[in-house]
Design a protein around this nucleic acid. Structure first.
Length: 289
DNA sequence: ATCCAGGGCGGGT
DNA sequence: ACCCGCCCTGGA
């Protein structure tokens, strides 16, 4: 364990608030100075943007520079993506301006699966609370600057939890889902390493859907926000349904908008970048609501 | 108090 | 294929 610092200068398309509050992650919290602190693998990382510099400070075992480049997907050209998507229409162009510093993270697949199973019919404060309690109980403690942080439990660590333990941690009806999925992954009935090797997004999605608690929306979130990193998916939650209805479909009752219609529309308009388009639209709609 | 929050499941048509 | 009621929890 060691303290490290890494500074990015003149980086474009990197705004901590946009990245950490666009709904893709649950383990980052804002500090009083506006920076964000989160847990990535076995590291605690603080991200602070000052003018045109992003300062990363960490305490952990991994090489910070390598970790940051990988986790924040720094080798991807977001300027190019934004230029391309901005040409679609003025709605998307405006939402891209609003969330111009969004980057889609490469989050650990296992952690992303469990986190989004917990997210079902839940709200963000509760989701974060549950994940913190699971990490506190089954993860490992890291102490840094007088504060305690806990790593997200590994498959083996979480497999020690019984259904009752999970219920006590506040998971509610998601307890059995997390328990069953953990067991299935532990026993490699679904092999996460193998899943990374499959190129066909549809096949990966089919496999994810065999996991308890993983339906269409959760599967798409896992595909988009984890190291699987697929942009040809379009997670449809209440906010995305709302924004797509408001902008294009204009049905009087947004709850009756057909998912298939939204999927078709997204594919037509945004093509293979529909996943990233979804993030700009989601962040804009929810943040200005 | 009732409702809802970043859905999924199981049992109906 | 669609549709619907139900599922824990806690904050408004």
């Amino acid at each position: 364990m060691q303290e490290q610092k890494y500074i990015l200068k003149n980086i474009s398309s990197f705004e901590p608030k946009h990245i950490f509050e666009c709904g893709q992650c649950f383990r980052w919290d804002e500090e009083s100075d506006g920076s964000y602190t989160g847990i990535v693998k076995n590291n605690v990382i603080n991200v602070k943007k000052v003018d045109n510099e992003v300062i990363f400070s960490s305490f952990g075992a991994d090489n910070l520079e390598k970790l940051v480049i990988d986790y924040f997907d720094l080798n991807r050209n977001y300027e190019e993506i934004k230029t391309s998507l901005s040409k679609v229409d003025e709605y998307l162009e405006n939402s891209i301006k609003y969330g111009s510093g969004i980057r889609i993270l490469n989050q650990d697949l296992w952690e992303t699966i469990i986190s989004f199973i917990i997210s079902a019919n839940n709200n963000i404060p509760r989701i974060k609370g549950i994940i913190n309690r699971l990490s506190y109980k089954y993860g490992n403690k890291i102490e840094w600057k007088g504060k305690e942080y806990y790593t997200f439990p590994t498959v083996e660590e979480l497999s020690k939890a019984t259904v009752e333990d999970l219920r006590k941690a506040g998971l509610g009806f998601r307890d059995v889902r997390v328990f069953d999925t953990t067991k299935k992954i532990l026993e490699k009935q679904v092999d996460l390493e193998e899943l990374h090797k499959e190129k066909d997004t549809k096949k990966v999605r089919e496999t994810l859907l065999t996991l308890s608690g993983v339906g269409p929306k959760v599967a798409d979130c896992i595909l988009l926000f984890s190291t699987l990193k697929r942009f040809d998916v379009f997670p449809i939650d209440v906010w995305v349904r709302r924004v797509m209805n408001d902008l294009y479909i204009k049905n009087e009752d947004e709850s009756k908008v057909n998912k298939k219609e939204i999927e078709k529309l997204a594919k037509e308009k945004y093509g293979d970048l529909e996943g990233i388009a979804q993030q700009y639209l989601f962040y804009w709609k929810r943040d200005t609501a």
